[in-house]
């Protein structure tokens, strides 16, 4: 068994105003390796934590373009190159009749790209977390906001980080070892 090391310092909050304030202060103090676990998305908290706009829309857009290009190519190539069939004198290819399928495939691929892009950006599925056995941490999916500063942060030092967390007004400040 390897020796246990402190991986994070955790503190609980219950007031959305206080967690907003704490997030801004942690960010302003220069910490980067920290996270806040919340039972529901708190509006503006990501900004207070100093997070930049998600790149997910670009992933979705790329998926949409991929779907659209494929739809046009599929309809054009099958209808007017590989299998030319005269149906009621209709043109072999035209944008008008292609629009429904172009639209549907664009939507389908955008949705798939968004869905899988989301889990990729979140690093999920991941069924293990160093924090998972902490009872206070588990309440983050119920009714508590849990602030966690990780020891991987260059500014992390056990005593000062703990003291800082207490100053922020966190309840039950504790160390997590793994």
């Amino acid at each position: 068994m390897s020796e246990k090391k402190t991986v994070a310092v955790l503190g609980n909050f219950t007031d959305p105003n206080k967690i907003m304030d704490a997030a801004a202060k942690v960010h302003q103090s220069g910490y980067t390796e920290f996270d806040i676990y919340t039972p529901y998305p708190v509006h503006g908290l990501d900004k207070a934590m100093g997070m930049k706009r998600s790149i997910l829309p670009y992933v979705s857009f790329a998926g949409g373009i991929f779907g659209l290009v494929n739809a046009v190519f599929l309809i054009w190539w099958t209808g007017s190159v590989d299998y030319k069939l005269n149906i009621g004198g209709k043109p072999l290819f035209a944008f008008q009749f292609s629009i429904p399928v172009m639209f549907e495939l664009t939507v389908l691929l955008t949705a798939l790209a968004t869905f899988f892009g989301l889990w990729f950006l979140c690093g999920l599925p991941k069924w293990y977390s160093d924090l998972q056995d902490d009872a206070g941490f588990q309440r983050a999916v119920d009714d508590t906001f849990v602030l966690s500063i990780f020891s991987s942060d260059s500014r992390f030092s056990l005593d000062t980080t703990e003291k800082f967390m207490n100053e922020l007004g966190a309840d039950n400040v504790r160390r997590i070892e793994a």
């Binding site: 997070m51 997910l56 939507v107």
Partner: peptide, 28 residues
């Protein structure tokens, strides 16, 4: 649940994804 923890860093992407899927489903 894919190991969802409620991380705000995940919610951040999640809310955008929710908005995009809602925006897609509407014309769909």
């Amino acid at each position: 649940s894919l190991g969802w923890t409620g991380s705000m860093r995940n919610w951040h992407h999640y809310e955008i994804a929710y908005m995009i899927l809602a925006g897609l489903s509407t014309p769909l």
